[in-house]
């Protein structure tokens, strides 16, 4: 059973495994640096559907189906499903996953949803409450733009700090300890708000939340950047990453050599005109599910921290002049499980 260490971190002593993952992407993602690692790509942004929202639902549906196929499982083998997206009332998830018939929890963590859903899945398995749990999230450039910003054909200029919402979906299945990657510890984030109001600079809004969660994890586990091969953030982008490194340095942790950001992995900043990098739930999900999880499985990455960050505002709150509260959730993923406790009364 899990152990609370420090104030915020939970060590999952049973070391649940991520037994499978699948990543779906669109055209821009397929043309990016990890394009060939996606399970499914579709150059048609509509994914054959009648609206962008239905396209995103279709992506989630395909992600769920693909990860089940890869693990040789049927929907009936999954006890719980955690899913979320950026759209109002989580319609992408609801409409995309309704046919699966799996007991369902909808989540809104904005771009932190991949970590949030994975944490909850791992907690259920760790606690012996379920044998197999699925976590899915997605984002779609077009559906996000029309909800949060402007219609697609609108002629506006994007600022240098703005990020590109990824058209991507990722799905994982978490099960009892059997194979790498193992989920060894999780730190659930708190909502942080440093009074950033610029909707075009999400990286800056989210960096403090990432700093706090990472700092708490290090303090609770008495570890530091040197203990990990990779500290991967979800979508801080160029600006957010710079700020995170500065903020953590002030706390006495230098993560510069170990840090990478999914928003800067998914796209080539120089050639794909994404300004400060990729963003959206699908960004972190796609990078994790296509590239990172296989790398841990193959032992190329031994120990890493995955921190997905989310900006928790709405178009209404922004118009009302409110600042952008953010959150960051952390998982310690490893190619080796937690050491079994010596003796004891299990």
């Amino acid at each position: 059973m899990a152990t609370n260490i420090g104030q915020y971190t939970l060590r999952l002593d049973q070391s649940p495994s991520i037994i499978g993952s699948a990543a779906i992407g669109g055209k821009k993602e397929a043309e990016g640096p990890i394009g060939n690692m996606f399970d499914i790509v579709n150059y048609d942004a509509m994914f054959g559907q009648k609206s962008w929202e239905l396209a995103e639902s279709e992506m989630q549906h395909q992600a769920a189906q693909k990860v089940l196929d890869k693990c040789n499982l049927a929907p009936g083998d999954i006890q719980y499903l955690f899913a979320g997206d950026l759209l109002n009332q989580l319609v992408a998830s609801h409409y995309g996953l309704r046919e699966l018939g799996i007991p369902f929890f909808g989540l809104y963590g904005a771009c932190s949803t991949m970590a949030e859903s994975l944490i909850l899945s791992a907690m259920l398995v760790e606690g012996g409450l379920a044998k197999k749990v699925m976590a899915i999230t997605s984002s779609h450039f077009c559906s996000a733009e029309r909800q949060f910003r402007f219609p697609l054909e609108y002629g506006g200029q994007r600022t240098p700090t703005s990020q590109w919402t990824a058209t991507a979906a990722g799905a994982c299945i978490v099960a009892e300890c059997s194979q790498p990657p193992y989920v060894r510890a999780v730190t659930v984030g708190c909502i942080e708000d440093k009074d950033i109001k610029d909707l075009n600079n999400m990286g800056a809004a989210m960096a403090p939340a990432a700093c706090t969660t990472i700092k708490r994890y290090f303090q609770d586990t008495l570890t530091g950047p040197d203990n990990y091969d990779l500290i991967l953030t979800g979508d801080l982008g160029q600006v957010g990453s710079d700020l995170l490194i500065q903020l953590l340095q002030r706390e006495g942790y230098d993560i510069k050599k170990k840090h990478a950001d999914c928003g800067l992995i998914l796209y080539d900043q120089r050639t794909q005109d994404v300004h400060a990098g990729g963003s959206g739930c699908g960004c972190a999900a796609a990078v994790l599910c296509s590239y990172i999880i296989p790398a841990i499985k193959e032992g190329k990455i031994k120990d890493m921290l995955f921190i997905a960050t989310g900006a928790l505002m709405s178009p209404v709150s922004v118009q009302q002049g409110q600042s952008i509260p953010c959150i960051a959730h952390l998982l310690h993923l490893s190619s080796t499980p937690n050491p079994k406790p010596q003796g004891g009364n299990l």
Binding site: P160, A204, V239, L243
Partner: peptide, 14 residues
């Protein structure tokens, strides 16, 4: 102080 850091880290419009 953070707002100052943000300003420095954010590339200005070209």
């Amino acid at each position: 102080a953070y707002a100052q850091m943000v300003k420095k880290a954010s590339p200005p419009s070209k």
